[in-house]
């Protein structure tokens, strides 16, 4: 029985890490603009599918991954320049709706490029499962966990130790004052989309060997990632990861001990409860009134 429990936890951590990694991307863009970028899941999809194509074209795996992520960053920057920037003066809600439209557009475009079939990426370091007590884990899950951890550490450093990072935090705090202080808030926004796309792209190639990849892969991952970000407290990348792990483990335990039919429902209800008790999420900023 305890072996089962361990296996449930492993399953939960595996998917939770995926959710968390996607969730971090939501936090970055939210920080810079208060916008929830609903095309975040599509970054995941583009990186995964792009890499499968490059790999199929005969490139070495590492090069294909790097280019796949780079393409995703370019898509992220293009999204900001073509869709978000022109509507910069609009309200946050308008910008969010634009990202919803962008996500639909990206899915449709991806369908034209890659078709409806699903594809897969080979695991980075073999498919031989690793025994962990009585449970087993895919090596790729460790890559996801490691990739998530490294991403979050680098992000923290970026925010704490670089001018661009601090500019981003300042813009998040108050865009008008940041502008008065000489911060180019438009550049900050563009940078935030680039970073979010980078994170989505990294998530895409790390997750693809586990989840496989197809044009709709970003829809559910995006939604769960969004939940992770909200649960952890929007704007806090570290919180998004913890939120992702909580959602993942809750799902796995529900599937294991209650019923797999209620797995998603239990996770969503739990998020609702947390948000009622702690409206800013587990690690959300304690900020006062936004005016």
């Amino acid at each position: 029985m305890s072996a089962d429990l361990l296996q449930f936890l492993v399953a939960g951590v595996t998917v939770g890490a995926c959710y968390g990694l996607v969730g971090v991307g939501f936090s970055i863009i939210y920080n810079a603009s208060q916008v929830i970028n609903f095309a975040q899941g599509e970054f995941v999809m583009i990186a995964g599918l792009g890499t499968t194509s490059l790999l199929a074209a005969g490139m070495p795996y590492a090069v294909a991954i790097a280019l796949g992520v780079l393409i995703t960053v370019l898509v992220g920057v293009a999204l900001e320049a073509l869709a978000i920037a022109p509507a910069r003066q609009s309200s946050v809600v308008t910008l969010i709706i634009i990202t919803v439209g962008a996500s639909i557009f990206l899915r449709g475009a991806a369908e034209l490029v890659w078709g409806r079939n699903f594809r897969s990426l080979p695991p980075f370091s073999g498919a031989e499962p690793i025994a962990l007590g009585g449970a087993v884990i895919q090596p790729q899950s460790l890559w996801v966990l490691g990739g998530t951890a490294i991403s979050v550490v680098l992000l923290s450093l970026f925010f704490a130790a670089t001018r661009s990072g601090k500019a981003m935090l300042a813009t998040a705090c108050n865009p008008n004052v940041a502008l008065l202080l000489g911060i180019d808030t438009r550049a900050v926004l563009r940078l935030s989309f680039a970073i979010a796309a980078l994170l989505g792209g990294i998530a895409g190639v790390l997750i693809a060997p586990i989840s496989l990849t197809y044009t709709d892969v970003g829809v559910m991952l995006g939604l769960k990632g969004f939940c992770a970000a909200i649960l952890g407290g929007l704007g806090n990348p570290f919180g998004a990861v913890v939120g992702g792990l909580i959602v993942g483990v809750t799902e796995a335990l529900t599937a294991g001990y209650l019923s797999s039919a209620y797995k998603d429902a239990v996770a969503f209800v739990m998020i609702l409860v947390v948000l009622i008790v702690m409206p800013r999420g587990l690690f959300g900023a304690k900020a006062g009134e936004r005016v």
Binding site: D4, Q7, F8, V10, T14, M220, G256
Partner: peptide, 20 residues
């Protein structure tokens, strides 16, 4: 009689349950 959701990336929890 186990199920999984749309877009789920892992079903080891369900399979573990079926195993036992």
């Amino acid at each position: 009689d186990e199920t999984h959701g749309a877009g789920d990336t892992d079903v080891t929890a369900q399979l573990t349950k079926i195993r036992s």
